[in-house]
Design a protein around this nucleic acid. Structure first.
Lengths: 147, 147
DNA sequence: ATACACTATTGCAATATGCAACTATTTTAT
DNA sequence: ATAAAATAGTTGCATATTGCAATAGTGTAT
C-alpha cells in the first residue's frame, strides 16, 4: 500500500525538477543565440552522427512539418546540412556542419560543467544513491507510459 | 573529485526524465482539451486560492503579457476569473471558477494516480531512497541556478 | 503636487505549431 | 510488369504562442 504523502512529494519534486530544468535549458539556449527547439535538435543530431527527419521528429516528439522547418532554420544558420540517402532516396540524412559541431560541443561542455557543479553540491556519500534513484525513477516512468 | 562517468549519467538521466515527463504533460493536457500552458496555470492558481498575474508569471517563468493572454483564454473558457484587489487596485486576483476547480481536481487526481502507479512500480524498499534523492537533487539544482 | 515605481493589458512583429495536401521514392500485390 | 499502397519529406495555410515596447491605471515618497 503506497503512502499518499509520498505520492504527493514525488509529484511535487518532479514538478519542481522539470520546471527548474526547463528554465535552465531555456536560458542556456538563448545564451547560444538559438531557440530551445534548435538546441534540442542539435544535441540529438550531434549525439548520433546522422539521423533522418522522421527519427528526429519522433525523438523530439514533434510533427514532421515542424521538425522540417526547425532543420531549415539550422541549415540557414549553417549549423546543419541535409543530404539525400543514396541507398533510399526518400530519406534525408541530417548532419551537423563544422559550425554545428562546435555549437554542439559548446552545449555539451556547458551542460557537463553544470551537472558537475550540481553533482558536487550533493554530499559525497549520496551521489551514487541519487544516480541509482534516477535510474529507478526513469525505469518506473517508462514502465507506465500513459495514454 | 567528481567522476566524469557519473556526470554524464546524471545529465543523460535528467534529460530522459524531463523529456518523458514533458510528453506526459502534453498528452495529459490535450486530453483535457486545454493547452499545456493553461494546464500549468490552472494547477498553480488552484494550488493557491488566488494569485496575482505578476506572481503567476514569475512562477511559470513567462512574460507578463504572455501570462495575461493565457489567463484571458482561461477566462474565455470559463475556467478562471479576474477580480481587482480592493486593497491595492493595481493587482488582479486570479481565481478558478467552479468549472476551473473541477478541471483542477481532475488534473490533480489523474496526476496523483499516475505518480502512485509510478511509485508502486519502484521496489518497496527503494521508494524512500528515491524521494530523498530527488530532494537532494532539487536542492542541488536550486543552489546552482545558472546565469 | 509631482515624480517615481509598480501592475496589468494591448499593439505588433516574429516565431512556432499541426493538419492536410502534395511530390518523390520505394515496396507490395496481382 | 504494372498498378496500388506505403513511406519520407516538404509546403500551404490557418492558428497560437511568444516577448518587447508602449500604454493606462494605481499607489508611494518627497
Amino acid at each position: 500500500m503506497t503512502n499518499t504523502n509520498n505520492i504527493q512529494q514525488l509529484r511535487e519534486l518532479v514538478k519542481t525538477l522539470v520546471r527548474n530544468l526547463g528554465i535552465l535549458e531555456k536560458s542556456e539556449a538563448s545564451c547560444c543565440g538559438i531557440t530551445l527547439g534548435q538546441c534540442h535538435a542539435i544535441v540529438e543530431i550531434g549525439s548520433r552522427k546522422t539521423i533522418s527527419l522522421n527519427d528526429l521528429a519522433e525523438v523530439l516528439n514533434l510533427d514532421n512539418s515542424t521538425m522540417s522547418r526547425t532543420v531549415n532554420n539550422l541549415v540557414n544558420q549553417n549549423l546543419a546540412q541535409r543530404e539525400i540517402d543514396p541507398s533510399d532516396r526518400r530519406y534525408v540524412k541530417i548532419k551537423l556542419t563544422k559550425e554545428g559541431e562546435e555549437s554542439f560541443h559548446s552545449i555539451e561542455d556547458s551542460m557537463a560543467q553544470y551537472f558537475e557543479t550540481v553533482l558536487e553540491s550533493i554530499a559525497n556519500d549520496k551521489r551514487d544513491q541519487v544516480i541509482e534513484s534516477l535510474q529507478l525513477l526513469v525505469k518506473a516512468i517508462n514502465n507506465n507510459k500513459c495514454c
